[in-house]
Computed example of a mutant assay.
Amino acid sequence: MIPTKVQEEQAVMIVHTLGPKGTNCEKAGRLWLKNQGLRGEVRLYETLEEALLHVKITENSVLLGCAVYPFLHNIVFENLLDLKIIDSFVMPTYSMVFAAKPNTSETEIKTVASHPAPAHLAKLFSDHVQLVTSNAQAALACASNAADGCITTIKAADENNLQIIKDFGEVPMCFTIHGLKKI
């Protein structure tokens, strides 16, 4: 097998990205490792900014970002001296859904938890949008009664026993891979 450009630049074993378990970023990280023919692990963090700190101190690692992550531009430009985008790819997300606890009617939903990226979808259902750090975290907020409904992934909704009220389907999404520049 001929090594890819990414493999030639850096033997990647750890992908640092947005958690908690069940995020589109986790799914994308596993797919990227598989497509690169690399054996490794995906480590999850509350924010990409936190994950970035670990990339800088962990050998053989990269940051996986999502093109619609609200502050991806800050990650790129604030770290321009020691970080570069080394790859990108498009992968369909899990289906994005509006969900709530079982037996909740749409009229009972006052507060909707959402990651900032799909928050526009939350505004279709409520003027009271509670921003959280990931789509998976939105489902956790709904399941724990911190919010009445959520914009999340179908995977996170299923894992938290939420009912799907509206399915927006998969979203073809660009994911970026950031690695440290060689000195």
Rank of each mutant, 00 (worst) to 15 (best):
L44N: 01
T58W: 00
N135S: 03
E108T: 14
E59G: 09
V112D: 08
E78R: 14
N60I: 08
S126T: 15
L124D: 10
L131K: 05
K123R: 14
I85R: 01
S88R: 13
S126Y: 07
S114F: 14
E78F: 06
C66I: 08
L44Q: 03
I109A: 02
P102I: 04
L81M: 07
L121I: 12
F89L: 15
K123W: 09
A100H: 03
I109M: 14
V76M: 02
M91P: 00
K123S: 08
E46F: 02
F89P: 02
V55H: 08
E106K: 15
A117M: 04
I109F: 12
P116K: 08
V112K: 13
K110H: 14
V55Q: 06
L124C: 13
F125V: 03
I57Q: 13
P70N: 04
S61G: 07
H54M: 00
L83P: 04
L72V: 09
N74S: 12
Y94P: 02
V76I: 10
P116V: 14
L64M: 06
E50Y: 02
D127A: 00
E78D: 11
L64G: 02
S126W: 11
H73V: 14
E59I: 15
C66T: 09
P70G: 07
F89T: 10
F125P: 10
H115P: 11
S88E: 05
S134F: 01
A113V: 04
S114L: 04
Q137R: 10
V55P: 03
A100S: 15
V76L: 00
S105P: 06
L52M: 13
V62N: 09
L53F: 09
L44V: 09
I75R: 03
A67C: 13
I86G: 15
K56R: 06
M91Y: 15
A100R: 08
K84C: 05
I57H: 09
P92R: 06
A119C: 07
T93G: 01
E106Y: 08
H128G: 02
A136C: 04
P102K: 13
H128M: 15
H54S: 04
T111E: 02
V129N: 00
L81A: 15
E106P: 06
A51T: 05
D82P: 09
N79M: 06
P116W: 08
L63N: 05
K110W: 07
L63C: 01
L44K: 04
S95Y: 15
N60F: 04
P116G: 05
L72H: 07
N135A: 13
Q130N: 11
I75W: 03
V129I: 13
T58P: 07
A117I: 07
V97P: 05
K84N: 12
F125L: 07
N74F: 13
A51M: 00
E108Q: 11
M96K: 05
E46C: 02
Y69W: 06
N79R: 11
F89R: 15
L64V: 12
I109L: 12
A122K: 14
T93D: 01
P116D: 13
Q137C: 11
T93M: 05
E50T: 00
E108V: 11
L83Y: 00
S61F: 08
A67E: 14
K123M: 15
V97S: 06
P70L: 12
E106S: 08
A136G: 11
H73N: 12
E50S: 10
I57F: 05
L81Q: 11
A113T: 01
T58K: 08
L81E: 11
E78P: 03
I75N: 03
V62I: 13
A67S: 04
E106F: 08
L80N: 07
